[in-house]
Amino acid sequence: MSTATLAPAKPTRSYALRDSLTMLRRNIKHMQRYPSMTISILVMPLLMLLLFVYVFGGALGAGIGAGGDRGDYINYLVPGIILMAATSGAVATAVSVCTDMTEGIVNRFRTMSISRGSILTGHVMGSVLQVAAVLVLVTGVSLAIGFRPDASVVEWAAAAGLLLFLAFGMAWLSAAMGMGAKTVESASNAPLPLTFLPFLGSAVVPPESMPTALRWFAEYQPFTPINETLRGLLLGTDIGNAGWIALAWCTALAALGYFWSRAVFNREVTR
């Protein structure tokens, strides 16, 4: 009897965790072997940071009432750039998942006695770790060029938790996009609108300075309350109810991505 015809025993939670960690190690080795994707998701937020600070910083600082002081504008801008960095892993996750789905490795995993859910979980965990490293580097560069937060240790921890929660939700959502894509090229394009959506919020300028229609969109899209919560935690500005709205959006993104990706994955592997 061939291995493919054997029905593997239903994995327990401990086996599912073990298999997920195995898949995580597999994805980390891929990142180490092919670092170009990690470098690319680091370069984009850094380029945006340097561009807006040193090219547009003076003009935009004056426009938001910072008196033309570039240092004040850095403090306004950096939370939005950090937020963009938290979304930057979406493309890499979608590409990685699509590669597995189109190159046949998933069919090989189907013949093995492993938890099916561990395949996706490994991708998501790897993405979150990748984004965490990018967040540390982007924050370090921001501090080096003049970002001066006044957050306490608890507020830094809350900000980090919010960013990782967002990265977790984005990872599941991009995993679903990667599985739904027919080619790696289309998988790399699908999450791009999400990674730039923070700039149509309050990341670069206040929504009050935008035209009416764009202002309405900026105020009610998911990344604005997340950005305002992050800015409040790091700089002490008023958060209001933005914190609860931010957590609700992150939960919604994670739930949508999880159930969507699992549904697509189960449909694909049972064909």
Score class of each variant (00 low, 15 high):
262 R>K: 06
1 M>G: 14
14 S>V: 04
6 L>C: 13
211 P>M: 06
66 A>W: 14
72 D>K: 13
219 E>C: 12
95 V>T: 12
100 D>L: 01
231 R>E: 06
256 L>R: 00
188 S>M: 05
24 L>K: 04
33 R>W: 10
263 A>M: 05
181 A>C: 14
267 R>C: 00
176 A>K: 05
175 A>C: 06
178 G>V: 02
250 C>I: 13
144 A>D: 11
214 L>P: 09
254 A>F: 06
205 V>N: 13
57 G>P: 02
152 S>K: 11
88 S>F: 07
230 L>I: 01
48 M>F: 15
271 R>W: 15
47 L>A: 13
179 M>K: 05
20 S>W: 01
26 R>A: 01
241 N>L: 14
258 Y>W: 13
106 V>C: 06
177 M>P: 13
25 R>A: 11
256 L>Q: 02
83 L>G: 00
68 G>H: 07
218 A>T: 08
93 T>G: 12
52 F>P: 01
252 A>G: 08
8 P>Q: 14
77 L>R: 05
170 M>L: 09
210 M>I: 09
15 Y>I: 11
43 V>H: 04
259 F>G: 10
76 Y>L: 01
250 C>P: 08
266 N>L: 13
205 V>I: 15
171 A>D: 04
267 R>M: 06
216 W>D: 07
17 L>T: 02
38 T>C: 12
192 L>S: 03
98 C>I: 11
109 F>C: 01
173 L>G: 10
45 P>N: 07
218 A>F: 08
163 L>G: 11
72 D>L: 15
181 A>Y: 12
26 R>P: 03
166 L>V: 05
224 T>K: 07
259 F>V: 15
21 L>W: 04
136 V>F: 12
18 R>W: 07
257 G>E: 08
258 Y>P: 02
214 L>K: 05
27 N>G: 01
160 A>S: 08
139 T>L: 14
138 V>S: 00
40 S>W: 06
28 I>L: 13
63 G>V: 06
103 E>I: 05
225 P>C: 04
128 V>Y: 10
116 R>V: 00
63 G>T: 10
248 A>C: 10
245 I>C: 12
151 A>Y: 11
80 G>Q: 00
240 G>N: 11
122 G>V: 01
116 R>Q: 01
59 A>L: 14
62 A>I: 12
207 P>N: 03
125 M>W: 15
213 A>N: 08
113 S>M: 00
140 G>L: 14
132 A>S: 15
115 S>C: 04
157 A>Q: 00
245 I>P: 09
106 V>W: 14
148 R>F: 07
98 C>S: 12
